[in-house]
């Protein structure tokens, strides 16, 4: 990537529902950044992503997002949110549809949309399941459908909540390769919530750990682990 530009900037943000979960969040995220957020269960990782996505309003502070208003943010939820009785194609098409603008080129809209779907499904290694109803897929396959849906949307900022769980090593590398390829081609940024700290350091360019209700930033290349995979 030649030059990186600012995608998201967060100032003095406090997130939470009835009580504060994480406060004093200050972040600047540029294209090419892969930010991993780690922390124990129930600490507020999902809440942070939901706040950035606009699903939860911040308790205080500001979020400035430079991604396009329509389809600029891609969200891969922890609970997937797929339409279970329709096909993989249909589900991925939901993302492709919000990411492609009909009025820019009405004639080729359908073609472009279906190209996006097939490419994304292929990258996730699910081509043979294209017309299968989602409810007949395994947990890991369903997770890849959710990722394919967001890739087909082609967002500038991907928010991925535990999108590698339930996947074996082979599939993890399939998904990571596809996402990295997409990010290189589209100059986008990504925030990943990951409970496995070791994996988080491997895949991220910046690591944020939630400690005592605040974010602490680490450089992943300087991380050391004890035998249990805990942070030293």
């Amino acid at each position: 990537m030649s030059s990186s530009e600012l995608i998201l900037s967060v100032e003095n943000l406090t997130v939470g529902y009835n009580e504060e979960l994480i406060s004093k969040i200050n972040l600047e995220i540029n294209t090419g950044d892969v930010i991993a957020v780690v922390g124990p269960s129930g600490i507020g990782k999902t809440t942070l992503l939901r706040t950035i996505a606009g699903l939860v309003k911040p308790i205080s502070g500001d979020i400035f997002c430079k991604a396009p208003k329509r389809g600029g943010i891609g969200y891969i939820p922890q609970k997937l949110g797929l339409v279970r009785h329709t096909s993989v194609y249909h589900n991925v098409d939901l993302g492709a549809r919000s990411g492609s603008r009909f009025f820019s080129e009405p004639k080729t809209w359908f073609k472009r949309r279906s190209e996006r779907v097939t490419t994304a499904v292929e990258r996730m290694g699910l081509s043979d399941k294209m017309n299968e109803p989602v409810r007949r897929l395994s947990g890991g396959q369903q997770r890849r459908v959710a990722t394919a849906r967001t890739l087909a949307q082609r967002p500038k900022l991907i928010l991925a909540d535990e999108f590698l769980s339930e996947l074996d090593e082979d599939n993890i590398s399939i998904v990571l390769d596809a996402v990295k390829e997409y990010m290189a081609a589209s100059e986008s940024a990504m925030i990943i919530v990951e409970h496995n700290i070791q994996r988080a350091t491997e895949i991220s360019t910046r690591l944020l750990q939630i400690k005592n209700g605040e974010l602490v930033e680490y450089n992943p290349s300087e991380m050391k682990f004890d035998l249990d995979g805990g942070l030293i």
Partner: peptide, 9 residues
Amino acid sequence: EFAISTGVN
């Protein structure tokens, strides 16, 4: 949550 995961705010 479903809407945002398909790219609709």
